[in-house]
């Protein structure tokens, strides 16, 4: 589905990513873990076009998408959420989710201004889809609220709903449960399992190891911009290199 081929990103002389290569198989959950500053968010930005890699290639469904602008990549079927929430505070919850369907809403400004019956019909269908997505995340009764007044946990779910409503081929989630309490985390975990059961391909950045071990099919470990391990959760958990990256020198502990 997605193949990364030696992705590098240098900020000045400083390498944030240094030749990262791995693949994200279709229909699976791949978790991307690593200590703070390992380059996880930079990698997501390089995949989605929010940032350009200085070297290497991103191949999505057999097509080289390296360096394409963000909106083109989004229209190819890659959706994402952001680590520091980017919900539109002034729009209603429903409109926020409808924004996730921008690609299906028609591109022509002139058609939009004329608002022909066909466009109205399409708008109604999109609205129904957005409402269905909100219901999935138990936000249906808050659809008309301005997003600004939602509590943090709800905003996280609005972002998830916005990213999934268009049924993207690949979903990139940047720390979907960061800052949530145990109950909310469990709720999001359930959602992710449901998405996986529905055949979504997910690349998940997460620090919550319980969640990662529970739902990931494959775990990729980044440290200081390098990919240090790839494997199933059980394999990665026993990998001495990974333990060292997370816990420091094992000798020092012993």
């Amino acid at each position: 589905m997605l193949r990364l081929d030696g992705i590098s990103r240098h900020f000045g002389g400083l390498p944030a990513l240094d030749g990262v290569s791995f693949t994200v198989p279709r229909g699976r959950v791949t978790a991307l873990i690593g200590p703070n500053g390992a380059g996880k968010s930079t990698l997501i930005n390089c995949i989605t076009g929010a940032d350009q890699p200085t070297g290497g290639a991103v191949v999505f469904q057999g097509r080289d998408i390296t360096g394409l602008p963000a909106h083109r990549i989004s229209r190819l079927g890659i959706a994402r959420t952001f680590q520091n929430l980017r919900v539109f505070p002034r729009l209603s919850v429903l409109d926020n989710v409808l924004c996730g369907l921008t690609g299906q809403g028609g591109q022509s400004m002139i058609m939009a201004m004329l608002r022909l019956p066909s466009l109205r019909h399409r708008e109604r269908l999109l609205r129904l889809r957005a409402m269905a997505a909100l219901d999935c995340y138990q936000l249906g009764d808050k659809a008309t609220w301005p997003a600004a007044i939602l509590p943090y946990g709800d905003r996280k779910r609005v972002e998830l709903a916005r990213a999934t409503v268009s049924r993207p081929d690949l979903l990139l989630l940047d720390e979907p449960v960061a800052g949530l309490n145990a109950d909310e985390t469990a709720g999001v975990g359930e959602q992710l399992k449901r998405l996986r059961a529905g055949g979504h391909t997910i690349l998940l950045i997460e620090h919550d190891m319980t969640l990662v071990m529970e739902i990931a099919d494959q775990v990729v470990v980044l440290d200081s911009g390098r990919c240090i391990a790839v494997g199933t959760p059980a394999e990665v958990r026993r990998n001495p290199v990974v333990l060292e990256a997370y816990l420091g020198q094992t000798e020092a502990c012993a």
């Binding site: 963000a70 989004s74 959706a79 952001f82 539109f88 924004c99 809403g105």
Partner: peptide, 22 residues
């Protein structure tokens, strides 16, 4: 009130997020 308009509202709210939404 159209999809294009929502894209514009998204753009006013947050350019990076709007680009990520297409």
């Amino acid at each position: 009130r159209s999809g294009v308009g929502r894209g514009l509202a998204a753009l006013a709210g947050d350019e990076t997020a709007a680009a990520a939404l297409g």
